[in-house]
Computed example of a mutant assay.
Amino acid sequence: MVLLRRVIGDALRARRQGQHRTLREVSTAANVSLGYLSEIERGQKEASSELLAAICDALGARLSELLGEVSNTLSLAENMEGVLVPVDGQPAEAARQVATDGSVSVSVRQDSPLKATLHATRTKKRDVVYAA
């Protein structure tokens, strides 16, 4: 299972890092505490729609763009077979590529029987990495 808050956080972090901005710069512009923004980026806290809009505004992005990226990543994850099922003969912590559509490549690393890490790489004008 992929957690929405982790995919959103990773998308926000990728945008911020792509702009070479610090957490402090974005948290000040969005009027949110640095610690809370960090927790959102790490997928530990779920941000309200108002807060997501403020963070997107601080990043110079539209909320619909961010949610579109998140939706595409989740769509690929939903189409993965056996995300939480170890592959026979393969160690649980091994990574494997499970989906690609040309512009997005997704791989899964099984961390434990109940935890998998989704890693999506999106290529457009620049490479952006999302992990969940």
Score class of each variant (00 low, 15 high):
70 V>R: 03
64 S>N: 08
61 A>W: 12
72 N>W: 01
81 E>T: 14
57 D>C: 02
84 L>W: 06
71 S>I: 07
75 S>L: 14
64 S>A: 09
78 E>V: 09
71 S>M: 08
91 P>S: 11
62 R>V: 01
65 E>P: 00
62 R>H: 11
87 V>Q: 13
87 V>E: 15
86 P>L: 11
59 L>A: 00
74 L>H: 06
59 L>I: 02
69 E>R: 08
76 L>G: 15
72 N>Y: 06
69 E>F: 05
86 P>D: 09
75 S>T: 14
59 L>F: 03
79 N>H: 15
68 G>Y: 04
77 A>F: 00
80 M>I: 15
57 D>L: 02
88 D>W: 14
90 Q>C: 07
80 M>A: 08
89 G>L: 12
64 S>I: 07
81 E>H: 09
79 N>M: 13
57 D>I: 00
82 G>H: 11
66 L>G: 00
78 E>N: 11
68 G>C: 04
81 E>K: 12
89 G>V: 14
67 L>H: 00
88 D>P: 15
67 L>G: 01
89 G>I: 11
87 V>W: 14
86 P>T: 13
64 S>Q: 07
68 G>I: 05
83 V>D: 02
79 N>R: 14
80 M>G: 06
89 G>F: 12
81 E>I: 08
58 A>D: 02
76 L>C: 09
79 N>K: 15
86 P>A: 14
70 V>M: 07
64 S>T: 06
59 L>K: 03
57 D>E: 03
85 V>P: 00
71 S>R: 13
88 D>G: 06
80 M>D: 10
58 A>M: 08
58 A>G: 09
67 L>Q: 02
57 D>N: 06
83 V>P: 00
71 S>Q: 12
63 L>P: 01
77 A>W: 01
91 P>D: 05
86 P>V: 13
61 A>Q: 08
89 G>T: 15
87 V>L: 12
78 E>W: 00
81 E>F: 04
74 L>Q: 12
63 L>E: 07
64 S>D: 11
73 T>A: 15
87 V>A: 11
78 E>D: 13
64 S>C: 06
67 L>W: 01
88 D>S: 13
83 V>W: 00
60 G>P: 05
84 L>I: 13
71 S>K: 09
68 G>E: 10
78 E>C: 10
72 N>P: 01
75 S>A: 15
68 G>W: 08
59 L>V: 03
83 V>C: 07
70 V>L: 02
67 L>E: 02
75 S>D: 14
60 G>R: 03
80 M>E: 08
61 A>P: 01
70 V>E: 03
83 V>K: 05
81 E>A: 07
81 E>C: 03
76 L>N: 11
82 G>C: 06
62 R>I: 02
57 D>W: 00
61 A>E: 09
72 N>G: 11
68 G>N: 09
61 A>K: 06
59 L>N: 00
87 V>C: 11
75 S>V: 08
90 Q>W: 07
